[in-house]
Design a protein around this nucleic acid. Sequence first.
DNA 1: TCAACATATGTTCATCTGTTCATATATTAA
DNA 2: TTAATATATGAACAGATGAACATATGTTGA
Lengths: 121, 121
Amino acid sequence: MKMEDFVCGEKYPHYKVIKDVEMKTPDEEEIIDLADMFKIFSDSTRLRIILAIINTELCVCDLCELLKLNQSTVSHQLQILRTSKLVKYRKEGKQVFYSLQDGHVEQIISQALEHIQEGGR
Amino acid sequence: MKMEDFVCGEKYPHYKVIKDVEMKTPDEEEIIDLADMFKIFSDSTRLRIILAIINTELCVCDLCELLKLNQSTVSHQLQILRTSKLVKYRKEGKQVFYSLQDGHVEQIISQALEHIQEGGR
DNA sequence: TCAACATATGTTCATCTGTTCATATATTAA
DNA sequence: TTAATATATGAACAGATGAACATATGTTGA
């Protein structure tokens, strides 16, 4: 064991604990993917879009109306959601209907919503 | 019904759908809280800290060692996690041990991790 | 073909965020 | 008290991000 492994000035203090944690932690790439996914959810506009299409497919125009937002703003956010594969879309003439890619997203969000709703403390 | 309720140039097109969605959607304040929570998870440094203390309490010094980060950086991020009530801490002499506030956080993250791990597509 | 409409995209700008450096606070031991 | 150590915090800076505007693309019907 090298000097770098010593922590808090003590000998072998939390060394074992640290090694244990290292073993169980997802690798760097996965953590970044995870953070990126949460980043998508971290904007209230995107979240409102996601919540809107959670059970219904909606066209861009509907989303603009519903969320009282610029068409440009909505399209830009939809682009981000498309890139991150969280939504799918279907073209029907001039219109494009968006819906959630799968049920995972809904689960993650409703779990988080529960936490919020309990968390008065 | 007013003109503003017309969407996509059609008469009463997705009007009912929109109203339905409006009914079911969480209110603005809740959405913002939700977004704020996801914002906390959206940084890989914070995520690594959270993952590290998911089953073990660790002191700041351990976290620096484990994550190979500045003590200042770690403290700043811990401050954010404290403010958002996602972690709790315990002082023991000079050291401060951090751990997760409750199991919700773990559930949300592991759910998201599952999504990531499946999502090769 | 052209006009009208729905959507997408490039660019700019103001704002936010994470990291670092320097320094402050707090605790322990001598 | 002073020195050493663990942690917290303030300021500054680089990079990221969301919104808006202008414009491009694609589709339909005349």
